[in-house]
């Protein structure tokens, strides 16, 4: 394995950590709002690590640009979807979970 392979695998493992943490959050967090936090932020960062890790192994720069394009699309879609779902939950009266005091 070359140095690039090692760095690439490390980045992919880091990305996988964020995807797993995001799923854990979706499972463990108490309401839809907190779950959206986990989903939008952790998964976008995870995909970022993946795109950088895979770019190191890519054959041509066009493939790198394409992956960055997909990443950007996922970021914009994720943030917008998160906003819409949170707004819909709020207007339909889903009460945010509060820490018991």
């Amino acid at each position: 394995m070359s140095v690039i392979d090692v760095v690439s695998v490390l980045l992919l493992v880091a990305g996988t950590f964020f995807f797993l943490a995001g799923s854990t959050g979706v499972l463990r967090f108490p309401d839809v709002y907190t779950r959206l936090h986990a989903l939008t932020k952790a998964d976008n960062l995870g995909l970022g690590f993946f795109v950088i890790g895979l770019s190191l192994r890519a054959d041509s720069w066009v493939v790198v640009v394409k992956m960055v394009l997909i990443w950007a699309l996922v970021i914009v879609a994720g943030a917008t979807a998160g906003h819409l779902v949170a707004e819909a939950a709020r207007t339909s009266g889903v009460v945010p979970w509060r820490k018991p005091r």
Partner: peptide, 15 residues
């Protein structure tokens, strides 16, 4: 602003 806020630590825009 709303979209950016959702990716920052601890904030999620909701309307």
């Amino acid at each position: 602003v709303a979209d950016t806020v959702s990716l920052l630590p601890g904030t999620l825009s909701a309307g």
